[in-house]
Design a protein around this nucleic acid. Structure first.
Lengths: 292, 292
DNA sequence: AAATTTACCTGACTAAAGTCAGATAATGTT
DNA sequence: AACATTATCTGACTTTAGTCAGGTAAATTT
């Protein structure tokens, strides 16, 4: 364990040395880092002052000044928004676009300079390892928290979940047939609903409801397609099992459709065993159970 | 190729976001980042003012002030060096050591916080990928340059090379028996000597000398044990082949001892074919040749 | 219509970071 | 011994980054 931490620290150190080089090549462009970062941000995701302020975490006064500096340099235009004339839309000028392209080229050059001394096999390996680190950093940045199934994010997840089932099931999927959509099942003290988020965006969910004194049922376990492969399904499942245990439940059960093969693989891997049907959900073809 | 560069850029972006977190946790310690970085550097690799200045890339006046600030806080002592009373040795005080330990703990915490949300398999994978990235970053940071075989670094490499042969050969190794140690063979225009460096330290070498009009011979190809596994042997070999080509040589040859199995594997992989003995080197058991 | 909130701007700050032109003392070179 | 070089220090800057307390105008709520 200590070795792992040491490795992470060494990694952080070496990698931020390199990242420092990047910053310095920005600075070399005769523009302070703050301005350069703002310009870069405007160039890539655009938006209004408010959004930029949030994304970069800047003080409103500071941002205002930076915007005016870039405006007087002819890099951006700042105009009141059509929809709400309090908010200011920020757009690149032609010159600004050229500048952002220069930054992009610098960034490319830095990337190339890292790859250049390596032979083909090494390049492939490095890029593969980088992708792996990136993926797992993303996985580590996911937060899972309990909240009401009625929040906007929770509803959004459930909607996407239903839409996906409808696409994947041979018969389509009508939530009403499966039983009444009753959010209150997932409310404390007996139930709970968890939402997974990455950078503030909801990317997965799961609900636990009480079937009887010693049994919980897990439902609506879903991970957004863009977040798959991060081990998030497993994490949500474990989280819900833990919450079931907290509620004094001795076992949890769940049902699933035959088309959801990856879900069934997950249940098996996590120690669930197939049991006889415990409900008459018309969409269910397999029923699982696990002692927690 | 473009995809590789994009991956490197995405990696840089995500990883430096994380590194930013590290900086901020330093800042939280009531000490400006510059001072904190300096203190950290003194704590881990110590040294005199000059070395610190080089490592951190600071202006001499700026460093001087930082040192005095830390001195007045009782974190470090700054004393003239015994050897050269112009240079100032910098050492941690007891309080300084405690402070550095606090930073270390923060750094550990950050590393843990990255690992914490992951399951065991993911942790292993992440640490493995980090080690891979680190290794290949080191490989990419190696520079290879031609220089006289008489420089301190070149001689140092050759000495280590000879010592290693002496250890590994069943018969031991006496350089004089193998032929006179004549540096001038490796001097332009006919010959050349290259030294590989990582962070300024010589970690490998190789020499090319002319045997006849169309033939070069590669000798003293060596990679420091600490730098093995970075593909450096291959890189040095390719470099020397290129230099042979520049000198109008049509082929290069080399000899080797049977105990150097990894060297022979390298020669085979790089397209060398075994040929009849072209010299009477008593230590040589295999002779190779390659058209360049 | 009045009160409140929101989005941004302005002026007046401070601290940190970094630069530059000498000055000083020890060391090396001729 | 004279001169040049090196390692560091000092004072006098500038720039960058960031904060804070109001202010204005548009939009929203009551």
């Amino acid at each position: 364990m200590l070795n792992q931490i040491d490795q992470v620290r060494r990694f952080n150190r070496i990698v931020s040395q390199r990242a420092g080089t990047l910053d310095q090549s920005y600075l070399g462009q005769g523009r302070p880092l703050g301005e350069a970062r703002l310009l870069f941000e405007v160039g890539h995701d655009g938006g209004n002052a408010r959004e930029l302020r949030d994304r970069l975490g800047l003080d409103s006064g500071y941002l205002s000044r930076l915007l005016r500096a870039l405006e007087s340099q002819g890099m951006i235009t700042v105009t009141p928004s059509e929809a709400d004339r309090r908010v200011r839309d920020v757009r690149l000028t032609e010159a600004g676009r050229a500048q952002v392209e220069t930054y992009d080229r610098l960034s490319d050059d830095l990337a190339s300079s890292i790859l250049a001394p390596l032979d083909e096999r090494q390049k492939l390996k490095l890029v593969e390892a980088m992708a792996q680190v990136e993926r797992l950093y993303r996985a580590a940045a996911v937060t899972v928290s309990a909240e009401s199934p009625a929040t906007v994010d929770a509803r959004g997840c459930v909607d996407l979940y239903i839409r996906e089932l409808n696409q994947r099931f041979d018969t389509g999927y009508d939530p009403d047939t499966a039983g009444p959509l009753d959010d209150s099942e997932f409310l404390p003290p007996d139930g709970v609903f968890v939402v997974a988020r990455l950078d503030g965006k909801a990317i997965g969910c799961g609900g636990l409801k009480r079937l009887d004194f010693e049994t919980g049922e897990i439902k609506r376990l879903w991970v957004s397609p863009e977040a798959r492969g991060l081990g998030l399904g497993r994490r949500l499942l474990c989280e819900l099992e833990g919450l079931a245990q907290q509620r004094g439940m001795a076992k949890v059960c769940l049902d699933t459709n035959g088309t959801l093969v990856e879900a069934q693989a997950l249940y098996h891997a996590q120690g669930y065993v197939e049991v006889a049907p415990y409900n008459d959900n018309p969409y269910a073809q397999h029923w699982f159970e696990k002692t927690v």
